[in-house]
């Protein structure tokens, strides 16, 4: 910290916490200069709800947002709206071997 000087022990602990914490996950938006440096177009995490770039948008991501759909379906606890592959649509991802490459092949389903 440059504009606040931690004076007592507790203030130093608060400072440590701030400097080591993952800033991206701290809730309400912080001013632009305080955000972690993420190049435009990257998403740092592959989990539902986090796939935005540093400006909060999805347009220029390296990884397509559509892969989330697949992520929700295979590995995530998130109760996402994905087709029921147990009974009605067992093959809906059959053509998608690797999500980041083949995501366009995931079938559309119209129940």
């Amino acid at each position: 910290m440059k504009h606040l000087r931690a004076v007592n022990h507790k203030a130093r602990r608060i400072q440590e916490h701030i400097e080591n914490d993952v800033v991206a996950m701290q809730g309400p938006p912080t001013p632009a200069g305080q955000r972690p440096h993420v190049p435009m177009g990257c998403s740092i995490v592959f989990s539902p709800g986090w796939e935005v770039d540093s400006s909060g948008g999805t347009a220029g991501l390296c990884q397509p947002v559509e892969r989330d759909l697949y992520d929700c379906y295979i590995s995530c606890y998130w109760p996402a709206q994905v087709p029921d592959h147990m009974n009605n649509y067992p093959d809906w991802t059959a053509k998608c071997a690797a999500a980041t490459k083949d995501w366009r092949n995931i079938d559309l389903v119209f129940p």
């Binding site: 400072q15 701030i18 701290q26 001013p31 632009a32 200069g33 305080q34």
Partner: peptide, 14 residues
């Protein structure tokens, strides 16, 4: 003030 200062104050909950 600059964004850095605002960020520090915000994170220390001041």
């Amino acid at each position: 003030a600059d964004a850095e200062t605002i960020g520090e104050l915000y994170q220390a909950r001041i």
